[in-house]
Design a protein around this nucleic acid. Structure first.
Length: 879
RNA sequence: GGGCGUUUAGCUCAGCUGGGAGAGCGCCUGCCUUACAAGCAGGAUGUCACAGGUUCAAGUCCUGUAAUGCCCACCA
């Protein structure tokens, strides 16, 4: 009935089969149990345009570890998956595809375009979800949501209307960040400031009625066509006399005033600034203060409009060149300096953003920012690591109103309806049949859609059914932890918090766990342009999902960047294979009959490993609770490989091979028990191989997914056995060390005599005889309390409380042996003096905890005894 | 201009609330020991960036310095 396992673990055939079974059996499906506290995570929804990358893999792995642990610990667990419609990114993708067919959006019209968009979504939108499944993600896929599905759209409209009615959403003419490529407004957060090489053009305007000129500098000369003033600092003595006079802007021949404003810095440049309220945020503010005209010179596509006179129709960069030429011809050009300055670019398309006056919808932030800040200050929301809360608070403290309207079609259309006759705006769920104000039936809906983040801001509650009062919402909200990257703290985390407080009356999650950026082996960000990305799907195909997950999380600390390399993936794969082979070994020894044991049958080594496993459980549970996932798995790794495989399994081999051994069953029991603990602790990290093995070694349970996570047990603390076995281990290590130094082959076994005055200690060695024989390469072992029968030339190994003699006299180079002992003595002396110094220090004995002092004292005794013994041995050799 | 990281073995990185420096990979030596050569046994390698300070005790806390990286910010 037991299956033969292959020699090496082969994930390929296993993973898909297992995942399918998990889905079929609905193990990930969240069940409401009001007698228990739930544990909930909502996934950061990937874009439907997305391709799985290492960032997703790390993010999903962390969430899955937390979810799987909690599920095994018995919490009703929900990991809610879904995708984001990614407004601009998706629309761009579809427009590009249409362009290949020679079609534009306008050719199709809004309705037809949206049909195509939905078709695109149906075809490609599920790819990313399928890829998340390849990661082993234990999401409740029956609850999968999409930001533009019916329910979430209803939530979006509901919030828009509520905020509008509250006066928080308003429509206004403002300077917005305009992307001439995407032809839409974007929010401040979507603008990246990139340092670029450019020119600082020095130009001048002639002062009207004077023979004087005002020289100014600009990086965007074309905007001067929209200048409506020129400004100096009121305290600038150089220019005071000109304040109130006018200059004429050439080309457009506009007379504009010379004004005084503190915004102008006297020391910077020439101390003169041209003011273009329609195309610069600062100038816009200056314009407001001085009641200046606002002249927009730009079309939506970045070409200049009718206000640009003869430049109409030219692209802004063309116009820039021509203007400089023209100023040169007019003698109004003085110099051009190379400078590096930051240029706003659209984070999606990387094209330069133009500040432009547009009528847009905004969310007023001042009121909603406050409670979101308070939530951080009073601990309702906590960042892990804590330092990331600064990004959150800094953003909220300096928050600007949020531009939420986008001039694209793919997204939630703004539920604002205009009356063609009286201009009245109605904001309602359904289109009104007639104007509320004048009863006109000429009603049309706002063309704009909402910022993607407006809908994702509602994600933690809209996905659970809000605005309906669903059972899910009632039970699973608020969620427990949000796992995300630091790059979207202000895009998303902040907005979820204030939206949730506003609409739900409480924060959407307690903890925000920040995962770092995944980098390549040289520490560079993985990117398409560098072509340095490692595709997680390639890794999965070659090494398996478990190896990928393990290499992402081993040694990973919260918030810290993580490099991936093939070396690390290979070593993770090797560890998985190690566990696989430990199982093969176990399976060779398990029999069909039930393995049982009670604690009385256990040998010291059994108690030793069970006790260590017990401690491991305690620490790992605590580490996971603290989000120290990398530390936790490192501990399991070390325990499984070093203690369990390299020591425990080796120690019990003689008992397993001897079918008559009365303790054989206890060994089998402990073997199975410990292996099971390891599997369960590892399962959240490497779900597939652990499931496969778990099903192989036992028949009672149908899956490890729903098995009980190991719990620490007071009954399994065996301090004495732990100490005893550790002593034997250190003796064996010393023996191996000596033999290696003397180049003795393992095949050469020797008789040993252990001299040990302490009777109890003698018993410990007696119990360890079989280990010394198999692991220490011994034949006969005598244990005695005196030196009777010891050959003077025998090599002596000093361990704490005993001396082990081995008949290597014929192999021993006396000189070398003397050197070895001398070195040993030197080391011991160092230890003794270190301890003595510490104990002689009154500060230490007075202030250090008693436990530590006792430990030091014990060590001192031990080392002194060993030192004495070593010196005795040296004396003997010298005689 | 502000803010936040990082600096620990040749490389990549752990090291929680201060109590004798760790892992993986790589390197050296020896092993096909009936779970595993994707393995076993043994070994070498660190002024924990630097300088001060607090403390009985500092990789860990405080101050400063230097390299390096990221984020924010309207210097025309």
């Amino acid at each position: 009935m037991k299956r033969e396992l292959e020699k090496n673990y082969n994930p390929k055939v296993i993973e898909d089969r297992i995942y399918k079974n998990w889905l079929d059996k609905k193990y990930f499906s969240a069940k409401i149990d009001k007698s228990k506290k739930p544990f909930t995570i909502v996934i950061p929804p990937p874009n439907i345009t997305g391709q799985l990358h290492m960032g997703h893999a790390l993010n999903a792995t962390i969430q899955d570890i937390l979810i799987r642990t909690k599920r095994m610990q018995g919490f009703p667990t929900l990991w809610l998956p879904g995708t984001d419609h990614a407004a601009i990114a998706t629309e761009a993708r579809i427009v590009d595809k249409m362009a290949q067919e020679g079609i534009t959006k306008e050719d199709l019209g809004r309705e037809k375009f949206l049909e195509r968009a939905w078709a695109w979504k149906d075809e490609y939108g599920g790819i990313i979800t399928e890829q998340f499944k390849k990661l082993g993600s234990s999401c409740d896929w029956d609850r999968e949501r999409f930001t533009m599905d019916e329910g979430l759209s209803a939530a979006v409209l509901e919030v828009f209307i509520r905020l509008y009615e509250k006066g928080y959403i308003y429509k206004g003419e403002r300077l917005v960040n305009w992307c001439p490529y995407c032809e839409t407004a974007i929010s401040d957060a979507e603008v990246d400031h990139e340092e670029k090489q450019g020119h600082f053009w020095h130009l001048k305007y002639k002062i009207d009625g004077e023979d004087e000129y005002l020289e100014f500098a600009t990086t965007r000369p074309e905007t001067l066509l929209g200048d409506t003033a020129i400004a100096v600092n009121p305290n600038d003595e150089r220019y005071q006399k000109y304040i109130g006079k006018t200059v004429t802007v050439p080309i457009v021949n506009r007379q504009i005033p010379i004004i005084a404003d503190n915004y102008v810095e006297m020391d910077f440049g020439t101390g003169v600034v041209k003011i273009t309220p329609a195309h610069d945020p600062n100038d816009f503010e200056v314009g407001k203060r001085h009641n200046l005209d606002i002249i927009n010179i730009m079309n939506n596509d970045g070409t200049l409009n009718e206000n640009a006179g003869s430049y109409q129709g030219l692209d802004r960069y063309e116009a820039r060149k021509k203007i400089i030429e023209e100023f040169k011809e007019m003698g109004l050009f003085t110099q051009a300096r190379e400078i590096s300055h930051s240029v706003g670019t659209h984070e999606r398309c990387k094209k330069t953003v133009e500040p432009l006056i547009k009528e847009q919808w905004f969310v007023s932030m001042s009121e909603m920012a406050k409670p979101a800040l308070d939530a951080l200050y009073n601990g309702e929301v906590r960042f892990v690591p804590e330092r990331f809360s600064k990004i959150y608070s800094h953003w909220l403290e300096n928050i600007q109103d949020w531009c939420i309207s986008r001039q694209i079609w793919w997204g939630h259309r703004i539920p604002a309806y205009y009356c063609e006759d009286c201009g009245h705006i109605t904001v309602k769920l359904e289109a009104p049949s007639a104007c509320e104000k004048c009863n006109s039936v000429k009603i049309y809906q706002d063309e704009d859609t909402l910022d993607t983040w407006f809908s994702s801001a509602l994600w933690p509650f809209s996905t659970l059914g809000w605005p309906n009062k669903t059972e899910d919402l009632e039970y699973f909200f608020p969620t427990n932890v949000l796992v995300t990257g630091q790059d979207i703290i202000f895009f998303w985390v902040v907005r979820m918090v204030f939206s949730s407080i506003e609409n739900m009356g409480e924060v959407p999650f307690k903890d925000v766990l920040i995962n770092g950026t995944v980098r390549d082996s040289q520490g560079r960000k993985m990117s398409k342009s560098l072509d340095n990305g490692i595709d997680p799907l390639d890794i999965i195909a070659e090494y398996g999902t478990d190896a990928l997950r393990l290499s992402l999380i081993l040694g990973n600390a919260a918030g810290a960047d993580q490099r991936v390399s093939f070396e690390k993936i290979e070593s993770s794969r090797n560890f998985i294979n190690k566990i696989w082979n430990a199982t093969r070994f176990a399976m060779m020894n398990f029999e069909d009959s039930e393995i049982t044991a009670n604690l009385n049958d256990l040998m010291p080594q059994d108690k030793w490993i069970l006790s260590k496993a017990n401690t491991l459980i305690k620490e790992v549970t605590q580490n996971i609770e603290n989000y120290e996932l990398g530390v936790a798995v490192q501990k399991i790794y070390d325990f499984a490989w070093d203690e369990f495989c390299d020591w425990y399994i080796e120690m019990i081999k003689p008992r397993l091979y001897n079918k008559d051994d009365k303790t054989r069953n206890a060994a089998l029991f402990t073997l199975k028990e410990t292996l099971t603990i390891i599997l369960k602790l590892l399962h959240p990290y490497i779900p597939f191989v652990t499931e496969e093995i778990f099903l192989t070694i036992q028949e009672k349970e149908e899956t490890i997914v729903l098995s009980e996570f190991p719990k620490f047990s007071e009954e399994l603390v065996f301090s004495q056995e732990e100490a005893d076995i550790e002593l034997i281990k250190s003796a064996i290590k010393s023996i191996r060390n000596l033999r290696a130094e003397m180049n003795v082959l393992p095949s050469k076994k020797v008789n040993m005599t252990i001299v040990c005055e302490d009777e109890k200690l003698g018993d410990v060695f007696k119990a360890g005889i079989s280990f010394l024989q198999t692991l220490g390469y011994a034949n006969e072992i005598l244990i005695q309390n005196d030196n009777v029968g010891i050959n003077k030339d025998d090599v002596a190994i000093i361990v704490s409380g005993a001396v082990i003699y081995m008949p290597f006299s014929e192999l021993v180079d006396i000189e070398k042996e003397i050197l070895r002992l001398e070195k040993e003595i030197e080391n011991l002396k160092k230890e003794v003096s270190r301890v003595e110094n510490k104990l002689e220090n009154e500060g230490f004995t007075a202030k250090a905890p008693q436990k530590l002092i006792d430990e030091e004292k014990a060590k001192g005794e031990k080392y002194k005894a060993m030192l004495l013994e070593t010196e005795k041995q040296l004396e003997k050799l010298r005689k």
